[in-house]
Structures are given as C-alpha cells and as structure tokens.
Simulated scan of single mutants.
Amino acid sequence: MHQHDILDRYRHLREIGNCHHQAALDHVPQTTIMERAKHLGLTHQGILTTDSDMEMALVFDLAVHTAKRGRSRAIDRYAKAASRADADETRTLDAIRHARFSLWRVLRHHDVAGLVIEDVLSERETWLIDEAMTASVAPGSAFAARLYSPDEFAITCGTVVPISAELIEEALLEGCWVQNHELHDIADDPRLAVAIYRTAVVQRTMETVRFRPIGANA
C-alpha cells in the first residue's frame, strides 16, 4: 500500500479506537477514577488535586485498562455491552482489549509511514503509526505507552510518557515486586504502568507533553 493509503487506514482505525475508549469511560465509576488518581498521588483527603489534562489521561488509562484482582476491566465490560456495526469496529475493540503496556525505544522511521520501535522489555520490533510522534520524536528516544494493533501497525491508546533512565530507575526501585519477575514479564503486571505514571507525575514529566483530545487525528 502507498503511504496515503496506509495513513487513511490508520486515521480510520484510530478514530474508531478513540470512540471505543471514550465509550469505555462510561463504564468507569467515579470511585474508580478517584482510586486511580490516588494511586498516582493526585488526590489529597479525597479531593482531586490536578487540573492537568495530561495527568488525567494517565488516570483514565488505568481506569479503563486495569482493575483490582478478581474484578473486570472497564474495557471488557464495555466490550460485552457494545454493539459493533462492522468488522473494523470489532477488530479494533478486540485489539484494544489486548493492548500491551511497555517501555519502547524509537529505532528509526518506517519506510512507508510512522516509526519502527522496539519493546525494551521483550526486544521485539513493532511498526507504530502516530503522526504527531513521527514528526517530533527522534530515533533513540524512549517512551512508555499502551499500544494496540488493529492492523499490521500499532496505535497508541492515547497516553504517551517520555521516559529516561532516571525515571525508569526511580519507578522500578519503588516496587519490590519487580525483583521477583523476569524482565519480559514485567510489562504484563499492571503495577508497572502505575509506577511509571506515578513517577512521571512526581517528576512533572507530563508538563512536556501536549494533549490531543480524544477524536483528534494523531
């Protein structure tokens, strides 16, 4: 496929993905929002202490994609209730349900569109399409994000956290659970996202990120 065909396909699937994520938030109780915000240090005495869209995006990501042990995730509850009109809606929602959070490094620009990135934890390469990142992120840059693959390429779930060696070290040192896991298994533990997000909040990393509203092409 030519570049414009790939980008048209990406924009179509991303729009569907944005709609799914927005609808999944309707299945998140306010108490869960506050719990996730508390995990990230964004509450005080039961009151939300941030008005940052970027920090709230971290809260929403955890609220939609993670759950307490024995509880269902909001994205799964939404999937059970959702009516999907066509194959792309079904395929995109299934991909979102299997989204993977990890630490990623940009290797190079893809020959057609987007970026070739590497999962730092599993050392697997992935083709990522994100127009904003392609225009602004240099090879060698690293970030944390949850990705889903509705086609041969991957798309971010909407939240991207720039990371450094210092941020990773601080995030992992605070969790003794990391010591009992193989490196490739760490990404499958929801505590990794919490640790990375909380450290990003403490280090004010999200102040360097520009928020793109749900529904905007990225």
Rank of each mutant, 00 (worst) to 15 (best):
H2V: 10
H4K: 07
H4Q: 11
D5V: 14
I6Q: 15
L7W: 09
Y10P: 05
Y10K: 04
H12E: 15
E15I: 06
E15C: 09
I16P: 04
C19I: 14
C19R: 12
C19S: 13
H21A: 15
A23D: 13
D26N: 13
H27Y: 12
V28L: 07
Q30L: 14
Q30W: 03
T32I: 13
I33C: 00
E35G: 04
R36E: 02
H39Y: 09
G41W: 00
T50A: 00
T50Y: 00
D51L: 02
S52F: 00
D53K: 07
D53Y: 01
E55N: 14
M56Y: 05
A57G: 06
V59T: 06
H65G: 10
K68T: 02
R69Y: 11
S72P: 08
R73N: 06
D76F: 14
D76A: 08
Y78G: 08
Y78N: 10
K80S: 13
E89A: 13
T92R: 11
H98W: 03
A99T: 08
A99F: 09
R100G: 05
R100Y: 03
S102V: 04
S102Y: 02
L103P: 05
L103W: 03
R105P: 15
R108G: 06
R108L: 09
H109I: 13
H110S: 05
L115H: 06
V116I: 09
V116L: 10
E118T: 11
S122V: 12
E123C: 11
R124E: 09
E125R: 15
T126A: 15
L128Q: 07
I129H: 02
D130G: 10
D130Q: 07
A132H: 12
A135S: 08
P139W: 01
G140P: 15
A142Y: 10
F143G: 09
F143D: 15
F143A: 14
A144G: 12
R146M: 11
R146L: 12
S149H: 10
S149N: 10
D151K: 05
D151G: 15
A154C: 15
A154I: 12
I155F: 07
C157H: 07
C157E: 12
C157F: 03
G158A: 03
G158R: 01
T159S: 04
V161C: 03
E166A: 13
E166G: 06
E166D: 08
L167Q: 07
I168C: 07
E169C: 07
L173H: 15
G175N: 15
C176P: 13
Q179F: 05
H181D: 13
L183T: 10
H184S: 12
H184L: 08
H184C: 14
D185V: 11
A187D: 07
R191M: 08
L192I: 09
V194W: 04
A195L: 06
A195R: 04
I196D: 01
T199W: 02
A200W: 01
V201Q: 01
Q203S: 03
R204V: 03
T205E: 08
T205W: 02
M206C: 01
P213V: 12
P213E: 13
P213H: 15
I214S: 14
G215E: 04
A216Y: 13
N217Y: 11
N217K: 10
